[in-house]
Amino acid sequence: MQVKNASILNLVAGNGNILRNQSGVVMKITILLLESPYNHQSADSAYHFIQAAIRKGHEITGVFLYNDGVINATALMDPPQDDRHIASRWSELGARGIDIVACIAAGKRRGIIDSVLVPNVRISGLGQLASMIRKSDRLVTFGD
């Protein structure tokens, strides 16, 4: 598989060791998430994909939330305590240095604005998606 840019990992495993993909190929990956949390599996799948990719030593260039995907970023969600808290997942990934961006146009339609965001997630334009894609070897879309 061809990799256009040799990349430097910006993520490390929990034990502090930088992981390498078994094949030695490190990919820069942009994640595009199009569905809201809970209603669809997409947000869970994207999250688990990211965890697995990081474990394999790949680099997540960024996560872009579009369509109903922007709802993943709201701090107003309050799921039952025995269920996963999807917005917190994104916030935690953001705290680990992954750029998590909710689309401003899609967000405004759905009430996702700066004042309701979980920490470590930001709002910006589709230009950010363009920039992430250009910097990545792969774009992986999670939608319905």
């Binding site: 579009y66 899609a106 334009g125 589709l126």
Partner: peptide
């Protein structure tokens, strides 16, 4: 609708 909005931005 939102795919068309992406087209214009890209």
């Amino acid at each position: 609708q939102e795919a068309i909005e992406v087209m214009f931005i890209m």
